[in-house]
């Protein structure tokens, strides 16, 4: 089997007295969409931020394309072709749409202009609002901006942390279609979702995280909803 693009091996993350992740191992292969499901507080965001280099694991390792990630130095991880679309979008509200997009790009000059043109082609609404402060966009538009910002650097892999959070179902459909479309362009995706049904429908494989550890994993089509519901509603340990 070929080397996975992301390999998380036995990762434990503690903050002070709190253990957010316990011995978590997951793998993501090139070209896949992997869903990470689980109730809130399961440690999904911590897992994404650990992969992106924001947190240092207390134990275990994270590898990106065969080499260990630089924990504690998210900028280095980002430059190796990984982007995190964070929970709550985290766009730069007071800056314009175009400035937000420029933040995502490692280039300037002509290369930057090409990237901007492509972004506006993909998201015409952002083109219309390029001079507007990003904080004034609607929730769905902000999410598109966050994704467009991530795409500026033509990354190999994008981690999405709760992309559907606070969005209307129609918008969520659009976002998920976009993620699936990007797979066909060769972008690998990891999608953290609470909304299990939708996430299973759009992903290739899934991991179920609860109380900081992996409780189940498999091909998305084969994951039984009753199992997942059990973990959500506490009828199953």
């Amino acid at each position: 089997m070929s080397e996975p693009l992301i390999r998380v091996a036995g990762v434990t993350v503690r903050y002070g007295a709190v253990t957010a992740l316990r011995d978590v191992s997951i793998e993501v292969n090139p070209g896949e969409i992997v869903a990470v499901l689980g109730p809130n507080g399961a440690g999904k965001s911590t897992l994404m931020r650990t992969i992106a280099g924001v947190h240092k694991p207390t134990a275990g390792q994270v590898h990106l394309a065969g080499a260990p990630v630089e924990s504690g130095s998210p900028e280095r991880v980002a430059r190796r072709g990984l982007r995190l679309v964070p929970e709550g979008r985290q766009i730069f509200g007071p800056m314009t749409v175009e400035e937000n997009l420029r933040m995502g790009s490692p280039d300037s000059g002509a290369a930057l202009h090409d990237q901007l043109d492509r972004a506006y082609e993909r998201f015409p609404i952002l083109g219309e609002r390029r001079r507007q402060a990003a904080g004034t966009l609607s929730g769905g538009e902000q999410q598109m901006l966050a994704i467009a910002r991530a795409l500026m650097a033509a990354p190999r892999v994008i981690l999405y942390d709760e992309p559907s959070l606070g969005l209307a179902p129609r918008i969520v459909d659009q976002i998920f279609e976009l993620i699936v479309g990007l797979r066909d362009e060769g972008v690998t995706s990891v999608v953290v979702e609470q909304n299990a049904r939708r996430a299973l429908a759009m992903s290739d494989r899934a991991y179920l995280l609860a109380a900081g550890s992996v409780k189940a994993s498999g091909r998305s089509a084969e994951m039984a909803e009753s199992d997942i519901a059990g973990h959500y509603f506490g009828t199953q340990r």
């Binding site: 998210p74 900028e75 420029r102 933040m103 300037s108």
Partner: peptide
């Protein structure tokens, strides 16, 4: 300028700025 953009972003949110590949 690009550097100015990065500094303004860093003042707003340093972690998200670093996640864009900008060196803190």
């Amino acid at each position: 300028s690009r550097a100015g953009l990065h500094m303004r972003a860093a003042a707003l949110d340093l972690t998200t700025t670093r996640l864009q590949g900008v060196s803190a």
